[in-house]
Computed example of a mutant assay.
Amino acid sequence: MTFTIQLPAPRPQRVSFFRRLAKQKLAVAGLIALAVVVMVAFFADLLMPHDPNAVNLTSVLLPPGSNGHVLGTDELGRDLLSRLIVGTQVSLLAALQGTTLTVVIGVTLGLAAGFFRGWVGKIIMFVTDVLMSFPGIMLAIAIAGILGPSLNNAMVALGIVLAPGAIRLVRGSVLAVREETYVEAARSIGTPSGQILFRHILPNVIPQLIVYIAILAGLVMLIEAGLSFIGVGVQPPQASWGAMLSSSFGYIDRAPWLAVFPGVMIAGCVYSLNLLGDGIRDSIGKKVTQ
């Protein structure tokens, strides 16, 4: 007599999020570029060859590679490389502040508008629609002008202006999840609303929110550069990439490198963040917590 032992079929191996992300070459390249920028900002004091605010009127508009200035000097004789390095700190701080404020406002009000129907949701969405009816950059300029020109005030303005987009994103995700069977089941057995919100609904919003944050950080960095360009963001003599672009405008014919280097840094960081956001979007899976 023979016995046949049937082994269970092997379960399909689940590919982790990080393995899927590692296969996204452009996203990995963007992540590496951003890591380099973060390291430069962290070790800025060690990497700067000169004082970024030291004025030397005898070395004005020197081309790259002259007299110990790798990237040349600006209209006041300040070392351009040192100012770019300091500008890295400012841009990352701006991205962190603006993105954090936008996400906090967006998640808080978006969850409330999507989960609590009635007058609460109506008021939140009415204010959101009013804010979105104004041109975003004009509204940011107006708010920053009222609060006063500074980096912190500019980021507060950006947080207010960009929050409606985050509110709509979170609200849409909440509306889709709150009708799921397991949410209805939790509600039917008397589970408190707060527990349903934070245990069942919020975890399903996080995947879309992570992708949004990566793209939002690039947008914040770009708008901060624009606000500094027109003088309502970072104030002299503090260096930022947007302020450096603004000061280079009058010397673009004689010293084009003044605009090229900060412009490349802005474009590179924003592009890297977008690549990372796209990679996360393609790699992440929607996790439903039941």
Rank of each mutant, 00 (worst) to 15 (best):
N56I: 00
P256C: 13
A259V: 02
I32D: 01
S16E: 07
L175S: 05
R11M: 12
G172W: 03
R117P: 05
V183Y: 02
I206A: 07
A217H: 08
S272I: 01
M265V: 14
F115A: 00
G72M: 04
E224G: 10
R78Y: 05
V36I: 15
V38A: 15
Q195V: 11
E180S: 02
A44T: 00
A22V: 08
R199G: 08
R168S: 07
I230T: 08
V183T: 00
N204V: 11
G231D: 03
S247P: 09
V107W: 07
T2C: 07
H69E: 01
V107C: 09
V211S: 06
P12I: 09
L62V: 01
G65N: 02
V232L: 13
G250I: 05
V288W: 04
R14A: 13
L7H: 12
L93I: 15
Y182R: 00
V37L: 14
G194R: 00
G65P: 04
L34I: 14
A35C: 13
G121P: 13
L81H: 04
F229G: 09
L209C: 13
T99H: 09
A267L: 15
T181G: 05
K286S: 12
I124R: 05
I5F: 14
H50N: 08
R187W: 01
V28R: 06
Q195Y: 08
I230V: 14
V86A: 12
G87Q: 10
